[in-house]
């Protein structure tokens, strides 16, 4: 679909696109009802109450982003994602400019995901807020309190949020405490996303790998035994960890079933070693699982 400029007062500007998660790549969502409740409670707003702006805090891989995608789906809103990093400037949060393709103009405005979410009443998801420098976060202040607007110096405009606009941020565990007070007091509740219980990890693995592994129940038990034996301090796995181990085990098995290293060495262009995974069930064994865990965590 062709991207079109939109009119913002007297300016024609490029909008940022909402993020559409690829549902085909993601297994069905499992658990996290309690966390979802906490977020939904924060987002409830009426004529006299403002929505709160929660921040999700948790270790990498526990599924913070996935929770936000699911909530966007449940609430029927578009999600505008903004990836935080150290080089973000305050103005990046409102508007940026780019060199124009049109020779008549030198530069064009590109509205940030935040401004687009405000204009369209969508969900703005600021990922890795803890990585953004404090001075760059200053523009968020007026968005997150009762003013609900953002001033863009570049645009020379004040943009007000539609009533449907909701804000959510995420960061890793250690970084939330380093947010400056003027933001910290505005992004709450602080919702801790912990490690999912083992039963949920098992459910995630089952949904993702059942069509590809016949002996999944045995493999899952083996996985727990290996994990408890090998991982120091009994740190539980995140869904990402578990998926990575099973994916790698499946790939190792696939690689071996196609002839392994011998075949790879002798492969030629006419008979190239294919990189595409097959749909057929893999003969993944405990050995493959052990090898995968060793490669990933030793």
């Amino acid at each position: 679909m062709e991207k079109k400029k939109v009119q913002l007062n007297n300016k024609l500007v490029w909008p940022s696109e909402p993020y559409k998660p690829d549902t085909g790549m993601m297994p069905e969502f499992v658990g996290r009802e309690s966390e979802m409740e906490l977020i939904m409670a924060a987002w409830i707003a009426g004529k006299r109450t403002l929505p709160l702006s929660p921040v999700l805090v948790g270790e990498p891989g526990v599924g913070k982003n996935r929770i936000v995608y699911e909530l966007a789906r449940f609430t029927g809103r578009d999600i505008y994602l903004f990836q935080g990093h150290e080089d973000i400037t305050a103005e990046d949060l409102a508007c940026t400019v780019r060199f124009s393709d049109d020779k008549a103009n030198m530069m064009e405005y590109v509205l940030s995901p935040l401004v687009c979410a405000m204009l369209n009443g969508g969900i703005f998801f600021l990922d890795e807020i803890g990585k953004i420098r404090p001075r760059a976060l200053a523009l968020l202040v007026s968005v997150l309190d009762e003013r609900r607007y953002i001033d863009s110096t570049l645009l020379g405009e004040r943009v007000y949020a539609q009533p449907g606009f909701r804000f959510i941020a995420a960061t890793n565990t250690g970084e939330v405490s380093l947010l400056p007070e003027f933001i910290r007091s505005r992004v709450r509740p602080v919702i801790k996303i912990g490690y999912p219980p083992r039963v949920e990890i098992e459910e995630i693995i089952s949904r993702q790998f059942k069509p590809r592994m016949d002996n999944l129940a045995t493999l899952i038990e083996k996985f727990w035994a290996l994990w408890d034996e090998r991982i120091k301090d009994k740190i539980p796995p995140t869904p990402r960890d578990a998926i990575a181990v099973f994916s790698l085990a499946s790939s190792i098995s696939d690689f071996e079933s196609r002839g392994g290293s011998e075949k790879l060495k002798s492969a030629i262009k006419a008979d190239a070693f294919t990189l595409e995974a097959g749909d057929k069930p893999q003969a993944v064994s405990s050995k493959h699982l052990e090898k995968a865990l060793r490669k990933l965590y030793d």
Binding site: E37, A41, R188, P189, V190, I191, K192
Partner: peptide
């Protein structure tokens, strides 16, 4: 009270009070 409403409770209970307090 919003969390109690989302959890479909008439009054906030032990868990709702603790979770809200931790978060806010």
């Amino acid at each position: 009270f919003q969390l109690a409403a989302v959890s479909q409770r008439k009054v906030p209970g032990f868990s709702t009070m603790l979770r809200s307090s931790e978060a806010v």
